[in-house]
């Protein structure tokens, strides 16, 4: 096993041992904290495909996170109130089935990513960052001004959505669902990176002109990666909304986009477990330093500065060394 493989295995072990230990010790708060880290890690896994593999610095991924969240919120609120979503051309009601909600969240966030990506990927560099940021803020203000679903105040869901065979209200069971999805997301990201598509995307990040001369179109490769990235982030948004049983426009805000990017950079952009390590550290700092000072983001900022200046590979890079070719 490579050094990075050992570090990744240790992270998985930590993700299993800490919540199970907390559950046995009857500490549901720790389990919920771990669930939050797992869900945010999944959002980071999504962004990492665009940022780490494709080199797309998107400051608008909160849009997909929020869309996933609102997909859950809207479907669940209609199911609770027994009011149909549509009456024409046929009656479609809400649902409290998690798998169905995930499917809708992923489809809608994928469509949104296709639209955002198709326009923003025609630009590069600072322009791409600004366009994705603008799209994110557009969705944010749309949610703020949508009174039917809570507007600025957001939308509360009284009961967590259901998953066949499990009681999702038991924190450790909901964590198991989130952890399973994170592992699936990581497995998919690993497969993607090693697939011909992933190799081409990586090559397009390094040298787009050279990729064109072997007959591939970097724009199309990036757009596909951006959509996949949006779909995964949207799924994380639906889980996050289910964890809190609440959605609000904050999920769409540029601060959320920034936080997801912080997980990725802190953990190691382009490293498979980078977002997981980043999200775990973020939650740990928030919990530990947040208890000491409400200005704990200052310490996070300092840490991020150190990582960017001295540890380009993030936490994974520090622990496992520099990344070489996929081998």
């Amino acid at each position: 096993m490579s050094r990075e493989g050992a570090v990744n295995a240790a992270i998985v072990a930590l993700l299993l041992v800490v919540p199970v230990g907390a559950w046995l010790a009857d500490e549901p708060f720790i389990v919920t904290l771990a669930t939050r880290a797992v869900i945010l890690a999944l959002a980071g896994v999504g962004l990492n495909i665009a940022l780490g593999l494709g080199g797309m610095i998107s400051l608008g991924h909160a849009a997909f996170f929020g869309i996933g969240g609102y997909a859950m919120g809207i479907l669940a609120s209609h199911a609770q109130s027994y009011e149909p979503l549509f009456n024409w051309p046929m009656t479609i009601g809400g649902t409290q089935s998690m798998p169905l909600i995930w499917l809708v969240a992923m489809s809608v966030s994928g469509l949104a990513a296709l639209m955002v990506g198709a326009l923003s990927l025609r630009t590069t560099g600072a322009y791409f960052i600004m366009i994705t940021l603008a799209f994110g803020q557009m969705f944010y203000y749309f949610a703020v001004s949508w009174p039917a679903y809570g507007g600025d105040d957001g939308l509360s869901i009284y009961v967590r959505n259901g998953f066949p065979g499990l009681n999702t209200l038991v924190p450790v069971q909901f964590l198991a669902i989130c952890l399973m999805l994170l592992m699936l997301g990581l497995g998919f990201a690993a497969m993607l990176a090693r697939s011909p598509f992933g190799l081409a995307l990586d090559a397009a990040r390094q040298a787009p002109e050279r990729v064109e001369t072997v007959g591939m179109r970097p724009y199309r490769l990036r757009l596909m990666a951006f959509v996949i990235s949006g779909v995964i982030t949207g799924l994380a948004g639906a889980l996050y909304a289910d964890l809190n049983r609440f959605v609000s426009p904050v999920m769409f805000s540029w601060q959320t986009s920034g936080e997801i990017m912080v997980f990725v950079i802190l953990g190691g952009a382009g490293r498979l477990f980078g977002p997981v390590a980043g999200a775990m550290l973020f939650i740990l700092l928030e919990h530990v330093l947040g208890g000491v000072s409400e200005f704990w983001h200052v310490y996070l900022g300092l840490l991020l500065l150190i990582v960017v200046l001295f540890a380009r590979g993030g936490i994974i890079g520090l622990l496992a060394g520099r990344q070489v070719a996929h081998g």
């Binding site: 190799l199 990586d202 090559a203 390094q206 040298a207 002109e209 050279r210 990729v211 064109e212 001369t213 072997v214 007959g215 591939m216 179109r217 990344q323 070719a325 996929h326 081998g327």
Partner: peptide, 28 residues
């Protein structure tokens, strides 16, 4: 035609400067 379509017609260039995709293996 754009560059990728010209390449698909069957133009295979090897540019000066031994340009390869550094992050990938030889096989990749």
């Amino acid at each position: 035609l754009p560059a990728h379509k010209a390449a698909r017609l069957g133009i295979g260039p090897v540019f000066e400067g031994r340009r390869r995709f550094a992050n990938l293996t030889v096989g990749e």
